[in-house]
Nucleic acid binder design. Structure first.
Lengths: 338, 338
DNA sequence: TTGAAAGCGCTAACAG
DNA sequence: CTGTTAGCGCTTTCAA
């Protein structure tokens, strides 16, 4: 059950001094005589004293906990971001409590409440795909509880955010397809209300225009972010009388689902259809053909989100509240037609 | 910065009663008059009172935190186990604090110390591949701090554990190869001191024997668990004058590295070499050819580990302290020779 | 230079 | 039935 930890009181009684003297000595308060200080510090070390964070927390009303809410934790994208958050949090002596919304708004709301009960000092969140009502976040804001959004954000709320530059990314993808001879470029998007969907679509449309291609609505399909629906969306694209010669998807789930479906229908990647994803390093190289993709700077995204958080916590005033991270197009086999 | 939360005192002063009455009313203590109780509960609800866990924790000397140490958090295997742990922890009103050892013993030791400082009530850990000295865990044991190992365990320590049945799994794999006509079955193992390496090797040897095959040391290579070293190990196997006709690896990292290397050398899977991995659902189906593999019951492993933990916390005496989870061989394309 | 006391939010034993 | 008090571990005035 765990033996009791050493307290200031233990040290004080052992040494026959007062608790406050011990407390002061341990933080090298100048008032305490050097001898006493040394004596106390020596014993503290010997007895392996560490301050009780519960007591400190109660006193200062701070738990040193950050609530992190993500759509899921098993996807590499999120776990990698979490790593980044954790890294910075640790540096600041904070730790993170992770909750998964499972892409459900109900669970998201619940998580906010639960974490609030646990007295987290603030939140770093990527909203669920379902979330279309933001009251639970507005409440946080009006209570002045620190909040940071990453990746999927709510544009109508004044909240510090870090996102990837989706417009630029999808523009790059479209152009890349064009330069590789593709003319019927299709895009599988996600739920319309998500900023990532909107941005990436915008880049897609701009890219088409820049390449002098006309937008063809048959080549833009939408799906929720499940594998099943992504497969359905791919099938829809492949049902067109005029097949697209290039497809890219909003995220990994979609990209891989598309890849499987294209292969299943006996079409060749990239020769029949070039494919590009929005994925991470690992998955992209493990599949066959290796997948050209825009890599998300996940670790950095996590770190930046955490940094924003601490700027809020520290009450800093002048900092950039809208961080946009550059993405990189890594060309692999799936998009270079022979 | 977060407005102050409502305290019992706030309710008490508002209602002009004592703090203890409020405390009692809130837990429906029979001593309090029904009227007062209702009045207090009503206000508490209105003001959205939730007990301060810090105060409770200080009082009861419990943080409701479990330290979870894993080799890394971004691998699906671990993040999925973490999900399982988290699920059960939540049911018990606990939350988990995750630390990653990055496969380094130094970091692992550090994590134990840090989490101890944070006053976690106990630990659930998968030891790092480097760990060959267990003092930091022995210390926990002698201090009666709850500890559970999963997947990679230390057999010399008396600690409740949950593992997958590696012997049975690799026996099944070996037999599966045999039944598919393979006779030169190779195995890429991990660091010898890890229980998972030992068990799986044992199953491999037993499987060979059962099939009436002689063990050939050229077909057993070892690697640390990095992609680079797994590639090296695969090359070593493929350098044999007599090529193996089947390979399986200790885990996903190895399996995928092997797959890439085999393809790179222009060999066909499964016709030249059949391949089987120890992986999760997602990865196995996304690669080409899809990978036959033994699936780890990761979620269950996490849940079981957490359950063990709470049995310790609750001071239960008679419970099974060695949980062995069955694995399942899912046959896909990579191992069925045409 | 050191100690006593109050208070952070809560519970529980003890009084009334 | 309700209030008072002490105490969990710590910091911080205020006193000495």
């Amino acid at each position: 059950m765990g033996k009791r930890h050493i307290s200031l009181k233990d040290l004080a009684t052992e040494l026959g001094v007062s608790i406050s003297s011990v407390s002061r000595a341990l933080k090298n308060h100048p008032d305490i005589s050097p001898e006493l200080t040394t004596k106390i510090q020596k014993l503290a070390k010997e007895w392996n004293y560490t301050p009780n964070p519960l007591a400190m927390g109660l006193l200062r009303q701070q738990t040193k906990m950050i609530g992190v809410i993500v759509p899921d934790i098993v996807t590499h994208f999120y776990s990698s971001i979490i790593s980044g958050i954790e890294e910075v949090a640790k540096q600041h002596g904070y730790f993170i409590v992770i909750a998964s919304s499972n892409e459900s708004m109900g669970k998201e709301i619940e998580s906010v409440e639960n974490l609030l009960k646990s007295r987290v000092e603030g939140f770093i969140v990527c909203i669920s795909q379902e979330t279309n009502n933001f009251e639970h976040f507005e409440q946080l804001i009006s209570n002045e509880i620190p909040l940071v959004f990453f990746d999927r954000i709510c544009e109508t709320l004044e909240v510090p955010t870090v996102i990837a530059d989706g417009i630029d990314a999808t523009k790059k993808i479209t152009r890349h397809f064009y330069e590789n001879g593709c003319r019927r470029i299709a895009y599988i998007s996600g739920p319309e209300h998500l900023n990532i969907s909107k941005n990436r679509r915008e880049g897609y449309l701009e890219g088409l225009k820049e390449c002098g291609l006309k937008f063809d609505p048959r080549y833009l399909v939408e799906c929720n972010l499940s594998t099943e629906d992504a497969t359905r969306a791919t099938q829809q694209l492949l049902n067109n009388s005029e097949l697209p010669d290039a497809i890219f998807g909003l995220n990994d789930t979609i990209a891989f689902a598309a890849m499987k479906e294209i292969k299943k229908q006996g079409l060749k990647i990239p020769d029949d259809i070039a494919l590009v994803g929005f994925t991470d390093e690992f998955h992209s190289t493990v599949v066959d053909p290796s997948l050209t993709s825009v890599t998300h700077p996940t670790l950095k995204m996590g770190r930046e989100a955490a940094k924003l958080f601490f700027q809020i916590i520290k009450n800093e005033k002048n900092f950039n509240k809208q961080i946009v991270l550059k993405t990189e197009l890594v060309v692999r086999e799936s998009s270079t037609k022979s």
